[in-house]
């Protein structure tokens, strides 16, 4: 290797070194730590004790794991598609606007700027049965409103509603994608007699497919880690908003319907001091997220016949 190529290599490395260092410190090291701790009994206060795959074996006996997995899967299957469909629909509507488009784009984007905890608290109070305005309005038109966050059947749909309200982050990406579809394609299709549905199905959808894939992958990863809104909604709706101790008593309220996988992971780790087991749960979550991402990318490749 010549001196010139060595210098070039060193220069290149110096440019990427900060990023590599960041990845090593903030991703690789925590990941390896988590893998190591998942094979130990560890309470954060004493020296970890190596127990081999015991923590993974314990998952089979965990009485709450199935419930947490079921709730999280429900959210992945419903929450992610609803948000994607909602964002596509909204962006399609917004591109049709001839006047006031900027105003409406801002209005629909604004909720995405509200911190999740604040938004959840507001939603719980808006939907509070008896005193919340939503059920009052429903009552005025003769509808006996549901118990929303206080009903095991309605709590998760209420969280989906909250996610739909804060759809601006996804909407803005789809809007950019839809606006990026060449107008000439629509003109050509119209000349061939294609109606609005045909144009959407044959032109818009294939063009924005990479964005849909992006939304699906990030949506699934986000939903697998769904924590803040579920924790806050359970605590506030349970009426024990300001209790410092015993927070996990309100996790999952009502009747475990909002008890997601990350809530269980947090409870086990930080309430029950089973950090080794919590790390095992985290590793499983990581592997599942990775597997889903790989599957989605492969399927997308199979559909499009090209690199995604």
């Amino acid at each position: 290797m010549t001196g010139t190529s060595l210098r070039r290599g060193a220069t290149t490395f110096s440019f990427v070194a900060p990023a590599l260092l960041g990845i090593a410190i903030f991703f690789v090291y925590p990941l390896i730590s988590a893998i190591y701790f998942s094979f130990t009994e560890f309470d954060l206060l004493s020296v970890p004790r190596w127990v081999g795959p015991e923590n993974y074996r314990r998952m089979a006996e965990d009485p709450f794991l199935l419930q947490a997995v079921r709730n999280t899967l429900w959210m992945v299957v419903v929450f992610v598609p609803v948000r994607i469909l909602g964002a596509i629909g909204l962006s399609m509507l917004l591109v049709q606007l001839k006047r006031g488009a900027g105003f409406f784009r801002t209005i629909f984007y604004l909720p995405a700027l509200v911190p999740p905890v604040a938004a959840t608290i507001a939603f719980v109070y808006l939907l509070k049965p008896g005193t919340g305005p939503v059920n009052h309005v429903l009552e005025m038109i003769g509808i006996d409103g549901p118990l929303w966050f206080n009903s095991p059947a309605w709590a998760k749909p209420s969280l989906v509603l909250l996610g739909l309200w804060a759809i601006g982050d996804l909407m803005i990406i789809f809007l950019a994608a839809v606006l990026g579809v060449p107008e000439s394609l629509y003109e050509a299709a119209s000349l061939d007699g294609a109606n609005a549905w045909h144009r959407f199905r044959s032109i818009t959808l294939p063009t924005i497919r990479p964005v849909i894939l992006f939304a699906a992958v990030t949506g699934v990863i986000y939903t697998l880690q769904y924590f803040d809104q579920a924790a806050v909604a359970g605590s506030i709706a349970g009426g024990q908003a300001t209790v410092g101790a015993g927070i996990s008593q309100s996790f999952g309220y009502p009747e475990g319907s909002t008890f997601t996988y990350p809530l269980w992971l947090y409870t086990v780790g930080f309430r029950y001091s089973a950090l080794g087991y919590a790390n095992a749960l985290a590793i499983v979550l990581f592997v599942v997220a990775l597997a889903v991402t790989v599957i989605l990318l492969r399927r997308a490749k199979a559909f499009s016949g090209e690199e995604s």
């Binding site: 509070k128 206080n150 009426g239 908003a241």
Partner: peptide
């Protein structure tokens, strides 16, 4: 449950 849902926060 319906009655409880209509009540204010404990604190």
């Amino acid at each position: 449950t319906k009655f409880k849902a209509s009540l204010g926060d404990e604190f």
